[in-house]
Design a protein around this nucleic acid. Sequence first.
DNA 1: TGGCTGACTTTCG
DNA 2: ACGAAAGCCAGCC
Length: 128
Amino acid sequence: MSRKNIAVSFFDTEEIMSEKSQNFFNDVYEVVRLIPEGRVTNYGAIAHYLGTRGSARMVGWAMNASHTMDDLPAHRVVNRSGVLTGKHHFSTPTIMQERLEAEGVEIVNDKIQQFDKVFWDPSKELEL
DNA sequence: TGGCTGACTTTCG
DNA sequence: ACGAAAGCCAGCC
């Protein structure tokens, strides 16, 4: 029986999980907010930066709850091919592309052009 | 309890 | 090169 177990006994298990989820959300939001204008990243890169590689879907899951955050540049997060897979989750299906184009990102058929050029990797740019 | 779903990614044929 | 399948893990029946 470690201190950890004792600490757990002071809290409801569901609250612990909820708090953990909150932290995960905040981490995702923090990284997304750090994406420079005119640059984009993908779910896997964020997941990798958070140390949960292979859990890229969880990043998308966190983003799904990001509609409450109006100051979050969620339009700068795309899938690994540079396709705007999440555009249907915005207020209109076109707002994502319009915002990116307003930042100078070229998009054709929902796909970012010169993706390797505008790609922003948090684990590299933020130096861990 | 258990199976299905998803703003994903990687591997394999 | 393109499609299928398998990991991934929290929510929701």
